[in-house]
Design a protein around this nucleic acid. Structure first.
Lengths: 232, 232
DNA sequence: CGATTAATTGATACTTCTCAAATCCTGTGG
DNA sequence: CCACAGGATTTGAGAAGTATCAATTAATCG
């Protein structure tokens, strides 16, 4: 068991389901949770299993992915500080539909299934936040579907780079603050690793990004947006 | 205004959010709703708008789609008897992310936004059902993402045909009971109309399906499942 | 520092899209 | 009821986009 995490930190995240929750509600959660951590590369939940609880990521980064044909990963989205993990399966009462693996050492709070339901029942506000959250994710998934179905690989890559940048921010040198292999980027974009590599090099030659090793920095967002055709 | 619909019909649908709702809850909804109908081809909600209420489809079939590059439709899913329409946007408090058009004459109940929230607040059971529903949809969306990213067009087509068959059932001649153009099928599969036509003809030659005009019947599901690589 | 994994590049094959032309339906007005 | 206009479907040919395989170089970790 790790040092307990302060729930107020998660509450501060405006996208968190705990945002704007009453002190009582927060206390209730604080008492029901336990703290866990995961090493880089460790699988947190995996497809097909029956989940026993929900994780709230305190610090770290996690990829959520399904396994497609021949075990190939399709990354659905990333999960980071203040985000919940595993709630979909519990709330829909279905087996877990996506695996999650820590991309770096990750600390999280674990809320057992029964406690999670209790919090939902005791706090209409939280319940509504969860509804809002899942509906928001549903909208994001719809965008991803349209993107995969209609855009070519270069457009999708530009889109993903913009998303990664806004999700994870930048380090002191301006590089996107996430450590992904080219293969993982390909698994988000939905293409072959080599294609991603070629297109990254193309974007670099065009001066829209720069890269050092596996790290990437955006140099010209507006052109990237134009390529991604993100009208929003 | 149309003849009022009987909410008990929708309540019977096992996938409906009204399923298993108390008589009181059902009465509350019955009193807040109004009834509307849409002609074939009529747009019910459209992308970018701010929704003022939720529709519960009583009878008819509706396609839900986003508009991608150059206005091309990407069909996300279909909505039919007992299903809700427009709740995502209302619950996430975002503009509507997908348009909906009636595929045939459709009758629905309309529940204004404020009433919908009232029902949610008054009926924890309903609120939980909505959570369950949106989380289920989230899982389906994830499957669709993986499918689009990793399967080829023929595999996706086989998958869609199986989904259409189980969603809409069959008419007396065994054809899938939904009237879609080849273009609409292409807009689900995420490909060009011509590609869908070629592959439908290929599946016909292989004896896996038969077709009459635009109607399609499945002849060999297990082979279709194998092509679709649906391991579930 | 060696061993392993990841990234890159090139060549080639395959899938899918696009454009064009022909045929088939379907609903409508005479 | 029939002919016709306009849209939908079908087929073909060629172009473009991606994937795959193989070989090389670079980076990383114990």
């Amino acid at each position: 068991m790790d040092t307990p995490h302060n729930c107020q930190l998660c509450q501060k995240q405006p996208t968190s389901a705990f945002h704007d929750l009453s002190a009582d509600g927060l206390n209730e959660i604080s008492q029901l949770k336990t703290c866990v951590s995961f090493k880089k590369g460790q699988v947190i939940i995996h497809e097909g299993a029956r989940p026993q609880g929900v994780y709230c990521i305190h610090r770290g980064k996690v990829k959520l992915y399904t396994l497609g044909t021949e075990g190939k990963e399709q990354i659905i989205r990333f999960i980071t500080s203040g985000d919940l993990l595993g709630y979909r399966s519990i709330l829909s009462d279905e087996p877990i539909s996506a695996s999650a693996t820590a991309l770096e050492d990750t600390h999280a709070c674990y809320i057992p299934k029964s406690s999670f339901f209790k919090v939902i029942q005791d706090n209409p506000k939280f319940s509504l936040n969860m509804l809002k959250l899942s509906c928001h994710e549903l909208g994001e998934a719809g965008k991803m579907i349209t993107s995969l179905a209609q855009k070519n690989v270069k457009e999708r890559l530009a889109e993903i780079l913009l998303i990664l940048n806004s999700t994870f921010g930048e380090d002191e040198e301006g590089y996107i603050d996430i450590n992904l292999t080219r293969e993982e980027i390909a698994n988000m974009v939905g293409t072959a690793t080599e294609s991603v590599i070629r297109l990254i090099s193309e974007l670099r030659k065009e001066g829209l990004i720069r890269s050092k090793g596996k790290r990437i920095a955006l140099e010209n967002r507006s052109s990237l947006r134009q390529i991604a055709a993100v009208y929003e």
